[in-house]
């Protein structure tokens, strides 16, 4: 059971990460990603009893996020690769980076569901062990898939 204060801390720590995962699912559409991130945190509060191990909190959050995103796609089918939004970029209005980011969204959108989840975790810098735990696969399997996916993402981004 999570206390309200603990939930506030989780929210502050994980909101940017969850929001970026949602952006990945919503092809960079910020208002939709914002609504989806909100939905993820509502689910996290509702389903807090399903946390078996506090140490596995980040895996639990990512799993709930992915499953919520997967179920929300049917409500947002209209967002295809042709409609990828202009995504604001920090630290400054870098046009080239903004274009690269749009390209990255296009690549993510074309990935299969399990590859997409893995790509989003990789981009968040989650380590192999945690990726394996979140996706429910073995570490060896995760390592192989990560290697292939990194190459794929690099190759596709090179074609900019």
């Amino acid at each position: 059971m999570i206390t309200e204060e603990e939930f506030n801390n989780i929210y502050n720590e994980y909101h940017p990460k969850v929001y970026r995962l949602c952006l990945g699912y919503m092809s960079g559409n910020q208002p939709l990603a914002d609504d989806l991130a909100q939905e993820v945190f509502i689910k996290l509060w509702e389903k807090q009893n399903s946390i078996k191990d506090q140490k596995a909190l980040s895996s639990w959050i990512y799993r709930v996020s992915f499953n919520t995103c997967m179920m929300s796609i049917r409500n947002n089918k209209k967002y295809s690769s042709n409609e990828i939004e202009d995504t604001p970029y920090q630290p400054e209005q870098d046009q080239e980076a903004s274009e690269s980011l749009k390209q990255l969204y296009r690549i993510i959108e074309k990935l299969k569901a399990d590859e997409k989840n893995m790509a989003l975790l990789l981009l968040e810098g989650v380590n192999t062990e945690n990726i394996a735990e979140v996706l429910g696969i073995t570490k060896i399997n995760a390592r192989v898939k990560i290697h292939r996916l990194r190459s794929k993402l690099k190759d596709e981004m090179e074609h900019l």
Partner: peptide, 17 residues
């Protein structure tokens, strides 16, 4: 963009809404 770290940094530097 041929380095994965660059792609990661591109991803994490998105301006949050």
């Amino acid at each position: 963009m041929n380095n994965f770290n660059n792609i990661q940094s591109l991803w994490s530097n998105q301006e949050p809404q």
